[in-house]
Amino acid sequence: MRYTRRFWYGVQCALLVQWGTPYCRRYAKERRMYLGVQLYAFEKEYVLSEPDYVFRHLAEIGYQAIEMPFLMDVHTYTKKYNLQYSALHTGPDALNDLPEIISHLQSNDCQNLCISGPLAWHDRSLSNFQKTCAFLNEKAELLKSEGIKIHYHNHDFEFKCAEDEISPFEILLEQLDPSLIQFCVDTGWLHMIGLDPVTFLKQYRHRISYAHLRDFLNGKSVALGQGSVDVASIVNELNDNSSLEWLVVEHEPEDAALEKLSVSRSYLKTELSL
C-alpha cells in the first residue's frame, strides 16, 4: 500500500505532539475544530419546509456543522451534505424530558447540548440561577453516561449584577460542575455588555469548550467583519484553546439569512483563513 506525504506528516505530528513541538500541537488541535452555523438565523417554519435547500446551501457556502435551535430529524441532510451536528440548543426546561433529548441526539449523531438561560426564563434572580445550576449538574451527570455533554450559553443578563452586587455568571462559575458542564461562550454578547471578549476568553479558557461568533453594529446583528466586534482577535485567542472543538457563527433571524451567513463565511475564509 502506498501512503501519501500528507499521511506521513500526520503520523509525524501525532508522534511529536507528546514531545511538545508547538507547530505539531497546533496542527493536531486545528484538525479537531469545526466551523458551524446556528440555524437560529432562519425561521423555524422555513427550515421545516425547505430543509434540503437550507442544508445544501450551508454546505456549499463552506460550513462544516450545524447547530439546531429546535428538535428536528436532520440525519438525512447532514449525511447527504457531509455536515456534522454540533449541538442542540435549547432551554434547561427541555431536560425535564431526558429520554426524548437522548433519543434525538443519538439518532442524529450529536453529542452536545447548548443550554441557554435559567429555569423559568424570565426569573433572573440569583436563587433561580442557583436552582438552575443544581438542576443542570444533576441532568449532566445522567447525560454523561450517554456520551452527551452540556455547554452553558451566555447572553448579556448573566453579567448584570443582581442582589448583593453578585452577577448570575458568578453563580454559574461557582456552582456548575466543571467536570460535567463547560461554557458555550457567545462572544458577541460579551462585547455588547461591555466586556472585552479576548480578556474573558483568556481568563476562563479552562472552562470554555464551545464558542459562538457574532458581530454587532450600533446594537444590531450584522455579518462578521461588518460591525464593532474584534472578531479577528477573538478567533486568534480561540485558536489557542486546545479543548475547543466547535466554533459556531450566529446571526439574528432575518429574511436574507443565507446571504448574510455567506458574507460571514467569506470573511472568516479570506481574512482569518478559517
Score class of each variant (00 low, 15 high):
117 G>Q: 13
89 H>M: 03
55 F>R: 00
229 V>Y: 04
154 N>W: 08
212 H>R: 05
71 L>V: 05
185 V>K: 05
81 Y>S: 03
13 C>W: 11
220 K>Y: 08
176 L>I: 02
269 K>D: 08
237 E>Y: 15
115 I>F: 08
47 V>F: 12
222 V>G: 07
139 K>C: 13
142 L>H: 07
229 V>L: 07
134 A>C: 06
260 K>A: 11
129 F>N: 09
226 Q>S: 10
257 A>W: 01
60 E>C: 01
40 Y>E: 01
208 I>P: 04
195 L>H: 08
238 L>D: 11
44 K>A: 10
107 S>M: 09
1 M>Q: 07
234 I>D: 13
21 T>D: 15
213 L>C: 00
115 I>C: 15
105 L>R: 05
51 P>I: 07
249 V>N: 08
219 G>R: 09
146 E>P: 13
170 E>S: 03
169 F>P: 04
140 A>Y: 09
151 H>A: 06
60 E>M: 03
176 L>A: 04
185 V>G: 13
123 D>R: 09
23 Y>Q: 10
100 E>A: 13
149 K>A: 09
240 D>W: 11
183 F>R: 04
97 D>G: 05
151 H>R: 03
77 Y>K: 03
100 E>G: 01
75 H>W: 02
71 L>R: 05
223 A>Q: 11
233 S>E: 13
49 S>I: 03
19 W>E: 13
6 R>H: 08
115 I>L: 14
136 L>R: 03
73 D>P: 02
43 E>H: 09
192 M>T: 11
178 P>H: 05
55 F>P: 00
226 Q>E: 15
93 D>C: 01
57 H>K: 11
94 A>L: 01
49 S>F: 05
141 E>T: 15
68 M>K: 00
10 G>P: 04
160 K>H: 06
174 E>W: 05
180 L>K: 08
257 A>L: 07
239 N>H: 15
142 L>Y: 12
199 T>P: 00
215 D>A: 06
262 S>D: 13
1 M>E: 12
84 Q>Y: 03
224 L>R: 02
7 F>R: 14
110 C>F: 05
46 Y>F: 12
170 E>W: 00
207 R>G: 07
219 G>S: 07
109 D>H: 14
144 K>Q: 15
138 E>S: 13
215 D>T: 15
229 V>Q: 10
145 S>I: 12
266 S>V: 14
67 E>M: 02
118 P>E: 06
172 L>S: 04
249 V>F: 03
46 Y>K: 02
200 F>M: 03
199 T>Y: 03
72 M>Y: 13
207 R>W: 10
99 P>G: 14
62 G>S: 00
133 C>V: 06
192 M>Q: 09
215 D>S: 12
198 V>E: 01
235 V>W: 15
192 M>C: 11
90 T>Q: 04
78 T>L: 04
119 L>M: 12
260 K>C: 13
50 E>S: 03
79 K>W: 02
256 A>T: 15
273 S>N: 12
192 M>V: 12
249 V>S: 10
135 F>A: 07
126 L>T: 06
144 K>D: 06
145 S>W: 11
39 L>H: 10
203 Q>W: 05
226 Q>H: 15
149 K>L: 02
61 I>L: 00
27 Y>E: 12
147 G>P: 03
167 S>F: 01
11 V>I: 09
263 V>H: 10
113 L>C: 04
217 L>W: 10
